[in-house]
Nucleic acid binder design. Structure first.
Lengths: 337, 337
DNA sequence: GTGAAAGCGCTAACAA
DNA sequence: TTGTTAGCGCTTTCAC
C-alpha cells in the first residue's frame, strides 16, 4: 500500500533542478525561464502531480477548510443547508468537513475538538438540542476561529448567525388562513422549550389578534408528531364547535391532520383548511397538496457560508457579530384555497 | 485574526524543556519522569492544547481522513448512507470529508482532485449518473488509495463495493403481491439505462414467471416521477382489464398511484394493492401506509466504511476486491394487505 | 534565472 | 531522563 503521491521533489529530481524552482515554475513565477516552466508543467501533468494540501496547510497555517457541525444530516432541511454550504465553499476553493452531533452534547464537544485539531479556518454550527453548556464553543472563539451559527442560536454567544423569521412566517401562514375567511383557526404547537415552538406560536397568536380574532386556548394543542397530530385532530373534531382551519407547526403534523380529517369525511380545504411548516418534501405529494412555509435550507447554508468567508477572506474585517434573518415564505397549495 | 493555537513548542518554552520531551510526555512515553509528565499534561490541559492534525498528517503521511463522493446529499437514502459512514469512521478516529458531485461528471473529477490533494487515506464513492469516463477513478487507484464503491458500481473497475440486491428485493416485493392473491400485477419501471431500472424490472418479471403468471408488456410502464405515475395509473385504470396490484420502482411513484386510485374510487389494497421501493420516509405517512422495500442506507454506509477501514488499518491486507451485497427487505404495511 | 536554507508542528532515531 | 537533529512537502527569503 505504499503511497504513490508525486511531490515537488520528485519532479525536481527528474529534471535535475531544485525544488524551489519547481515550486516557482508551477505558480508561474516571473523569474523562471519559459523553458523551465514548460518542462516542469509538462512533467507535472504527465505525472498527475497534485499539490499536497496538507503541506500547504501547515506552511500557511491555513487549511482552506471549513468545519460544519450539524445535528442530523438525514433531515431534509439540514441536508439542504449542507448543499448550500458545499456549493459556496467549493466555489471559493474551500473543502468542507461535516460532523454530526446527533443532537448529543458529548458528540458535539468531540466534533469541536476534531475540527480544531484539523485546524479548520472557520466553523458553521447548528447547536444540538441537548447542549446547554458552552465551553467547547468558547474554545472556538478563544482561538479566533471565525464561527457562524445557523438555524439554532445561543443568545449568550455573540457571533454571526443566520436564522429564519419563524414568527413572521407563522404570522403569514395564519394570516393566509384568515384572509381565506377562516375564523376559528387551530394551532398544532411545538414544544414550549424550543424556540421554533415559541416563535411559531407567537406569530400565530399575533395574526389572530391583528385580525381581531380571539385566541382560543382549546384550539392550541401541543402536537409535534404524526401520531399526536392524529389524536389532536380527532379531539378538535369532537368539539362542539370545531375549527375551520389548522396551522400546524410542521408538515408531518399537517399531514396527520389531513388524513384524519379525510377519514372523518371532512373536505379539505372546503370545510377545514390546513397549512403546514415545511420540513420535508411531502408538501407536493399529498392530496390535496399542502400549503406550507418554505424554510429555504439551501439559502441558509449559502448565506451562512458567505458570512463566514467574508471574515476568512478579509482578515481585517472585524465588524461586530451580524444577524441575518431569512424570510421564509408561504407556498400556497391546494390544502388552503 | 491571529490564530491562538497552542503548539508543543509553546508548552516547551513555558516549561523550559524541549519540544520532544513535551511530545513524549503527552503520549505517556515510559522514559519520561512522572514529574515532567505531570507538569506537561497539566499545562497542556490548562492551555487547551489540541494536537495539530495537519502536522501529524504531514509527518505520518496519513491524514486519518476518509473522503466521500456522493451524488446528492439531500436524498434521504444518501444522507442515511452518510450517517452510517460518519458513525463508523468517527469511532475509528477518522474524519470524513464529504463532496457532492450533484450527478455531474466535471464536479466529480474536481472532487477527486480535492480529496487526493488533501491526501485522504481512503475514499468511498457512489459514482454520478453522468460519469462514463473513469480516468479520475483510475487516478485514485494509481496512487494506491483504497476505495470502496457503494450503491453505484462500475463493472469495469475492480474495487471493493457494497450494493443492494435490487433484483432480489423486487422479486420479494412482487412475490408478496402474488402471495396475496394478485394475478395481474403492473410495474412502474425505472429508466432502462440505469441498473436499478433494469434490476428491479428483472426481479419483478422473474417472480411472475416463477409463479407461472404471464409477463404482460402493457402492464409495464416506464414511470419514475410522481407525474408520470399519475398518468400511468390512469392509463392502467382505463384498460379493459385493469391490474389488481402495482409494484412501483420507487415510493414517489407508488404514492402517485395511490392518490390516483383513490381519486377514482378504487380501494387500496382491496381492489388494487400497491408496493413501493423506499427512497424517502413517505411510507409511514400515507393513507393507507405504504408497503415498501427498505434500502438500509445507514447499513450500506457503515458496511462500506468497515470494508475501507479493513484495508486502511491492515496495510498488508490485500485480498482481491470484495463484493458485499446487502439484503433489502420488504416492510409490509397497509397498502398491500 | 536558479539554488540553498529555514521553517510551519510534530515525531523518532540517535546522542548525551 | 532529556535534548538535538532531521524530515514529512512546500514556500520564500536571501544568495549567487
Amino acid at each position: 500500500m505504499s503511497s504513490n503521491q508525486i511531490t515537488i521533489k520528485d519532479i525536481a529530481r527528474i529534471l535535475g533542478i531544485s525544488a524551489s524552482t519547481v515550486s516557482r515554475a508551477l505558480k508561474n513565477h516571473p523569474d523562471i525561464s519559459e523553458a523551465t516552466k514548460k518542462a516542469v508543467n509538462e512533467l507535472a501533468k504527465k505525472l498527475n502531480y497534485e499539490p499536497n494540501a496538507v503541506a500547504l496547510s501547515l506552511k500557511h497555517s491555513r487549511s482552506n477548510t471549513i468545519g460544519v457541525i450539524i445535528p442530523e444530516i438525514v433531515h431534509y432541511f439540514f441536508s439542504s443547508v449542507i448543499s448550500g454550504i458545499e456549493d459556496v465553499a467549493y466555489d471559493a476553493g474551500f473543502t468542507v468537513i461535516i460532523c454530526q452531533s446527533n443532537e448529543r452534547y458529548d458528540r458535539e464537544v468531540a466534533n469541536v475538538k476534531a475540527l480544531l485539531s484539523h485546524r479548520v479556518d472557520g466553523v458553521l454550527v447548528a447547536i444540538s438540542k441537548e447542549t446547554h453548556q458552552y465551553d467547547h464553543i468558547f474554545a472556538i472563539q478563544d482561538r479566533n476561529v471565525p464561527m457562524v451559527f445557523f438555524d439554532r442560536v445561543i443568545p449568550e454567544i455573540e457571533t454571526d448567525h443566520v436564522i429564519i423569521d419563524d414568527q413572521k412566517a407563522s404570522y403569514e401562514a395564519t394570516k393566509h388562513l384568515i384572509d381565506g375567511g377562516r375564523k376559528r383557526i387551530a394551532h398544532f404547537a411545538g414544544p414550549k422549550n424550543l424556540s421554533i415552538g415559541i416563535e411559531r406560536r407567537v406569530g400565530y397568536e399575533q395574526a389572530l389578534k391583528d385580525a381581531n380574532l380571539p385566541v382560543i386556548p382549546e384550539l392550541i394543542i401541543e402536537a409535534d408528531s404524526f401520531e399526536k397530530a392524529i389524536k389532536a385532530t380527532n379531539k378538535l373534531l369532537d368539539m362542539e364547535n370545531p375549527p375551520d382551519g389548522i396551522f400546524a407547526v410542521n408538515d408531518l403534523t399537517a399531514i396527520g391532520a389531513m388524513q384524519t380529517l379525510q377519514k372523518r369525511g371532512i373536505k379539505i380545504p372546503k370545510q377545514i383548511a390546513v397549512v403546514g411548516f415545511s420540513d420535508g418534501r411531502f408538501s407536493g405529494i399529498t392530496d390535496p397538496t399542502l400549503t406550507s412555509v418554505d424554510q429555504h435550507g439551501y439559502e441558509m447554508g449559502s448565506v451562512a457560508t458567505k458570512m463566514l468567508l467574508r471574515r476568512l477572506l478579509n482578515p481585517n474585517y472585524d465588524a461586530p457579530a451580524q444577524s441575518h434573518v431569512l424570510d421564509a415564505n408561504l407556498i400556497v397549495r391546494g390544502s388552503s384555497i
